[in-house]
Every structure is written in structure tokens, then in C-alpha cells.
Design a protein around this nucleic acid. Structure first.
Lengths: 141, 141
DNA sequence: TATAATATGAAAATGATTTTCATATTGTGC
DNA sequence: GCACAATATGAAAATCATTTTCATATTATA
């Protein structure tokens, strides 16, 4: 899958560092492009797209296919993501990504497999909903 | 949300019937357009998009945001979907949609809410993975 | 049957993403 | 350091799903 070798370039480093420093939320290609401009780190838009793809291939970023008109969003993949039994929760409102790192994930997966013959893909699956913060905010209005 | 009233038109009926007859899998706008052409039922592409949106709004179709380059896919929403406690499983390989209609869904949702303060959105959430049929096929190769 | 509301569809516009291609940068061997 | 082969960059053009525009057609209702 990774046929050719990678060169270390300024642009890739800049983008990688950006995601490491801003690992709390996800960005789409345009947002990233704008943030880099703001930082004075001009990276061509084409390169932004290519780097996003490249870092995802390497397993350094998570890619979430577009849920709206604004295109796919990308987020830094923390060490935690390497662990076996967790799944991602994503808040519809604030867009934040949470890790459900709990025995229930294993149980749920096992149940799906044993009782329903379905083998869950934890990488691709995202559970959408509303996080506590956003639901509190909504209720207090 | 539904401000204006709907007119009954040939195009809408044709599309609705198509989905009812082909409720086993999902179609994107282009596939649907092509199928309609094949059936001799010419419907403009703009109308295809508008109808897809319209039927989704009415709760007659499920819309799955694009996971690849081929655009969003749509599928007939069966009566089953009206029930409270089920969630959708989608096979990465064959694209088929399954209903997980089992007490575990309720348990899982409750656990998420009580233990992790997260309120799951069952409409939007899709669990991706591999169905039995496809995994058997893969193994027998 | 008139007419007001809504729907249709061809063509143009939009906007995210990809491709092209000429140029620049990087890693490697000397 | 130097040359050169591999790879990366970026501006502009191309793609492609989706939306908008707008003139025309259809539908519901009175």
C-alpha cells in the first residue's frame, strides 16, 4: 500500500505539528489551509490535500468522510487510538471526538459477532450523538 | 421544517416505487438516474436530487453521507425503521444494510448515557463492518 | 376551467477534491 | 560538497457531485 518512500519536507512537518498541537478537534482542508496561512506557513492547497491523504495512510490522522457540505474532516490520531477496544463518539453539535474506552465496547462487539454474525470495523465506525457539554448548554437555554 | 405542501407528481412516484421495489440496497443519485433511464422513465438529474432530498425529509428514505468519491447513497426506509430501539449495521463489502433489532441497543444506549454522558443519535449512527455472508465468502477463497 | 402554488429540467454555477506539469526539494552515493 | 534519481510542491486546469437559476410545465383547488 505504501509503495514509495516518503521524503521529509517542511510542509509535512508543519501540518503534522499543527495537528499535534490542535488534537482536540478536527479540521477540514480549507480550515487547515487558512490556519496555516494565519501562522505564516504558506502551504499550497494541493499540498494540503496530499498531505492529509498521506498522513492518513500512515495512520497518523483520522479521516471522517463529510457529513455536510464542508468536506471531509481530519483529526490527529492519538496514541490511545492504537489500543484495541475503543470506539469513537462524535458530537453532532460541537464536533468533538471522544474515545469510548470501556469494557462495553468489547462486549458490544462480541455480541454483534456471536449473536448477529457481524464483525464491527472500529476504525470506520463513528457513533454520533450529543455530548454532555452540548446537552447541558441546550437545556440551560 | 416542511413549510410548503407537496404535489403528487409522476417523477416522485416513479422514484418512490423504485426504492420500494429495490429496498435491499442503496443507490447514489447517478445510479438511480441510470436505473430510471433504463426503465424508460426519464427523470431529470436535478429532479432526482430534489426528490431524494424531499423523500429523506419526509422520512421515507435514509441518506448515508458519502464514504467514498461516489456521493451520498440512499435507501428505502422500511417500517422497521420506525421502531424505537434499533440501529443500522452496514457491510463495508456488499453495502447491505442490516437492522440490529435487539435489546443490546437499548442497553448500549443507556450505558452511553448513564456512564458516559453521551446521548446517541440512532438515526445518524451507522455501524460499519463485515456481514456474515461476506466474511464467509472471503474465508472460502 | 382559471389560477395560484409547486415541480420540472436544461444549463450554468458552486465548491471540494484531483490531475497535470513544470519546477523545486530531498536523500543517497561518491 | 556534487550530481542525479526519486519524490514533493503548487498554480492552473480538470473533475465531479451537488445546487442554483429561470423559463416552462404540472398539480391542486375553487
Amino acid at each position: 500500500m505504501q509503495e514509495t518512500k516518503d521524503y521529509q519536507t517542511k510542509q509535512r512537518n508543519v501540518i503534522m505539528e499543527f495537528f499535534q498541537k490542535n488534537s482536540a478537534r478536527c479540521y477540514n482542508a480549507n480550515e487547515l489551509y487558512a490556519e496555516l496561512l494565519k501562522m505564516g506557513e504558506s502551504v499550497g492547497k494541493t499540498t494540503v490535500y496530499r498531505t492529509l491523504e498521506n498522513l492518513t495512510q500512515k495512520g497518523l490522522l483520522l479521516t471522517f468522510p463529510s457529513q455536510d457540505k464542508n468536506g471531509a474532516v481530519y483529526q490527529f490520531k492519538t496514541k490511545k487510538c492504537e489500543e484495541q477496544d475503543h470506539i469513537h463518539l462524535k458530537c453532532n453539535i460541537c464536533g468533538k471526538l471522544f474515545h469510548l474506552d470501556c469494557a462495553i465496547v468489547e462486549e458490544f462487539g462480541l455480541h454483534l459477532f456471536e449473536q448477529h454474525n457481524f464483525c464491527i470495523d472500529r476504525e470506520k465506525t463513528v457513533i454520533y450523538g450529543e455530548c454532555k457539554h452540548c446537552s447541558d448548554k441546550r437545556k440551560s437555554k
